[in-house]
């Protein structure tokens, strides 16, 4: 069973068997436009909720992607080094950004489910 949560900053976090996968929402990639570079973190790095963990760069601008919870980065999506456009074509699938452990699963309670997120972006 997996469950997906959404943040006000347009990240999604999918939790499955204690590991979380994080990316930006399809709405976010639409707003950013074509991505040309993704600056990925080192695996093993500890992040706190709200830290800028990844930078995604479109033709126009660089934007921070924030960690939605505390934990340690266990994997990054290396495919994005050569194919940053995967975030545009499959933001909530193959275009995931990183996987992390969750130091406090209770932090997810404050996030939105899909219905609430869709209502927020209107």
């Amino acid at each position: 069973m997996s469950k997906t949560y959404y943040t006000e900053d347009h990240e999604w976090i999918r939790v499955e068997d204690g590991t979380a996968t994080v990316g930006i929402t399809n709405h976010a990639q639409e707003q950013l436009g074509d991505l040309v570079f993704v600056e990925l973190p080192e695996t093993g790095k500890s992040v706190s909720k709200g830290d800028a963990a990844v930078v995604v760069e479109s033709v126009k601008a660089a934007s921070d992607v924030y960690a939605p919870a505390d934990g340690e980065i266990t994997a990054v999506n290396d495919a994005l080094s050569s194919q940053p456009e995967l975030v545009n074509s499959a933001a909530e699938g193959e275009g995931w950004l990183w996987k992390m452990t969750l130091a406090d699963a209770g932090q997810l309670d404050g996030l939105m489910d899909e219905a609430a997120y869709l209502a927020m972006i209107g």
Partner: peptide, 12 residues
């Protein structure tokens, strides 16, 4: 207008 549905890369 900053961009259109075609997207910046394709517009360019």
């Amino acid at each position: 207008p900053l961009s259109y549905p075609m997207g910046v890369l394709q517009e360019h």
